[in-house]
């Protein structure tokens, strides 16, 4: 436990911010499900779902996991693992000719 491990409290968001983020998360989920039921939007399903879930992912990581406020080392560690995992998934999909 370092003396510096807890950033000053004002650096962290207030409960109000947390609640706002939660509302956005819920809304984005609702939009996702709504898009799912709109057959006319079928051509944009894939990009839409990927973008919307990335938005949710980023919001949770930045606000709830405090990456926006904490040391960049944490962001570096996590984003590093995440990018590697994403690259592995994409490479395997290409090798199995799911995507070209």
């Amino acid at each position: 436990m370092s003396l510096h491990s807890q950033p000053p409290e004002h650096a962290h968001p207030t409960p109000l911010t947390y609640a706002k983020v939660a509302i956005v998360l819920a809304l984005v989920t609702a939009v996702e499900v709504a898009i799912f039921y709109m057959e006319s939007l079928r051509p944009i399903f894939l990009p839409a779902f990927i973008v919307l879930s990335a938005v949710k992912f980023t919001l949770v990581a930045m606000f709830y996991m405090h990456l926006r406020f904490d040391s960049r080392l944490f962001s570096g560690l996590f984003v590093g693992g995440l990018l590697l995992a994403a690259s592995v998934i994409i490479a395997l999909l290409a090798l199995f000719q799911i995507i070209v």
């Binding site: 370092s2 003396l3 510096h4 491990s5 040391s71 080392l73």
Partner: peptide, 8 residues
């Protein structure tokens, strides 16, 4: 780094 071991 000034960061706690456990959080790292």
């Amino acid at each position: 780094t000034g960061l706690s071991h456990r959080k790292l």
